[in-house]
Structures are given as C-alpha cells and as structure tokens.
C-alpha cells in the first residue's frame, strides 16, 4: 500500500496531465458536437502545432510566449481549411468530410516527416526543472503552468459558448442545423469558426506540452487516442463532459501508473473506455436516449 501523501501526489500529477487531455478533448468534442464528424486530422493538427512551437523556440521564442501568436494563427488556419477545403470538398455529405479530414491528416504528417525527419526532439526551457513545493509533493513547473493556461482557456471558451451571440449561434447549429439556418445564422461560417476554435485549442495544448514532452511527426496520435476515450466517457459533443472526463482520465492514468507500474499507466484508461462502452454508451454527460 502507498501512503496517502504518495496517492495524493499521484492524483495531483494526474490532474496536471488531465488538464491537457481535457483541452485536446474539448477541441475534438466541440467539432464533433457542431459538425457531427470525427475530425481525423485532429492528431496531425496537434503535431503540426507542436512543430510550429518547436520552430518558434528555435527562433528564440518560448512556447508560453509563442502561444499568443500560434493560437490565433491556428484559428485562422482551421477556419480557412474548413471554409475553403473541407466544406466545398465534402458537398454536404458527412462521409466525405471524414475522408477529407483523413486525407488532410496524411498530407500534414508527411509534410512534417519530409521537413523534420522522424527524429524525436525536445526542448530545454529555463523553468524546465523548477517545481512548485506543496510540502509533501513537488509539482513540475512546466506542467503547473500548463494546468493554469488550460484553465484560463477553458474559462474563455465557456464564456464564449454560454454568454455571447457567437456562442449561442454555435449551440444552435449544433442542436439543429436547419432551425439555425432558418433564423438567419450563417451555418458554413459557424462550421468554420468551430473548426478554427478546435485548431486554436490544439495550438494552446501544443505550446503547453512542448516544454515537458517531446515532439515527432506522429506524436499527436497518442493524445488523440486518449482524447477519444475522454470524449466517449464525457459524452460525444459535451464540452463540460470533455473537461471533467479529461481530468478524470489524467488521474486514472496516474493512479494506474502508480499501482501497475509506469509503463502500464494507460492500461487503466482503456479499461475505463471498455467499461463505459458496456455500461453507459452515451457517456456520463451524453444526451439521454
């Protein structure tokens, strides 16, 4: 048995990781909730954003500073890709959207592979080894910062969705596309804004991940696999579900790493995934059937 201190430390560490999972998952579930498609380019977009942060770091800009430029840049890119590539190429058919995002992910990954080779890279930031001392546990500084930034982004996103006209339009399109079009909401624009928001969330996730993790041309897929579990757990399309699910999965991973050994940390995640599918396929926050 482990002492309560060790377990608490594991839970706190899990929360820190979980915040980033939550961010990646919110992006996935937001796009799913509004466009009703799984964006297969999600992982590749995260990877691309991590390389963008990496390039910025090579140019002397810390990822936590670069995020200020990269989040808006990825919003614009996401908007443009949905509005002028995915939208027109799909002719309004969900199946086509799936294929287009799949194609996009292949293109992005291979461009990254050609440009950066398959090497795994990481960066050394000055605050990389500092930590926050809580008395019974040291929390690594980069991940505490990641947690803080993620919380701010989640709050901003909540304000946008719950309190603004743009957010109301997004929720209306998510619920009823025809009803939204008939009150005069520009549905293709809302699709693109949502896609852009998803990409911007990924850019933030990339910037907070880079100081404490590594990057290679396939790294995004690992996060998306976890995010998929989170989205199913939280209920497809539910933003609060993705936040709580992400934090929860982070804790589960950390605890199962503690009890089953570091290399089996993800075991708990997939056990939960199967359990949710068996017991409550609509997820914890999913629409009641």
């Amino acid at each position: 048995m482990f002492s309560p201190e060790i377990v608490t430390a594991a839970v706190l560490n899990g929360l820190l990781t979980g915040a980033v999972y939550a961010l990646v998952s919110v992006a996935l579930t937001l796009v799913y909730g509004v466009l009703h498609i799984i964006n297969f380019a999600h992982g590749a977009t995260l990877t691309a954003a991590m390389f963008a942060a990496y390039v910025a770091w090579q140019a002397g800009i810390d990822p936590l500073v670069a995020v200020i430029g990269l989040a808006p840049l990825f919003f614009v890119l996401g908007y443009a890709v949905q509005r002028w590539i995915i939208g027109p190429a799909s002719h309004g058919e969900d199946r086509n959207i799936l294929l287009v995002t799949l194609g996009l992910s292949i293109v992005i990954e291979n461009v990254l592979l050609a440009t950066f080779r398959s090497d795994t890279r990481s960066i050394d930031v000055p605050y990389g080894f500092s930590s926050v001392d809580l008395g019974f546990v040291f929390l690594p500084m980069p991940r505490v910062i990641a947690f803080g930034i993620t919380c701010v982004v989640a709050l901003l996103l909540w304000i946008l969705l719950a309190r603004t006209d743009a957010g109301k339009a997004i929720r209306a399109v998510a619920k009823d596309k025809l009803g939204a079009a008939l009150v005069g909401i520009d549905v293709p624009h809302v699709y693109a804004v949502t896609f852009g928001l998803g990409a911007a969330c990924l850019a933030v996730a990339a910037c907070v991940l880079l100081p404490s993790y590594f990057v290679n041309p396939r790294v995004g897929n690992a996060y998306v696999l976890v995010a998929f579990t989170v989205v199913v757990l939280g209920g497809m399309g539910s933003v609060p579900g993705a936040v709580i699910g992400g934090l929860f999965i982070g804790i589960v991973e950390s605890l199962s790493g503690l009890y089953f050994g570091e290399s089996l940390g993800q075991l708990g995640i997939f056990l939960i995934f199967i359990l949710v599918l068996l017991v409550r396929p609509t997820g914890l926050f999913g629409a009641r059937a």
Binding site: D165, K168, A169, R171, A172, K175, D176, L178, G179, A180, L182, V183, G184, I185
Partner: peptide, 26 residues
C-alpha cells in the same frame, strides 16, 4: 422571407427567451 418550418425546429435546450432572441439574429 421567414420560414417557420414543419416540426417547429426550436432549440430545446435553450430558454424561450434565448429562442426568441435568436429569431432576431440578423
């Protein structure tokens, strides 16, 4: 030209007021 559709197509999770406000979206 305003089309009130078959089956109403109101937004069930929003309040009556929010639904009405969306009517004046433009």
């Amino acid at each position: 030209l305003i089309h009130v559709p078959e089956g109403r197509r109101i937004f069930p999770d929003m309040t009556v007021l929010e639904n009405l406000e969306l009517g004046s979206y433009r």
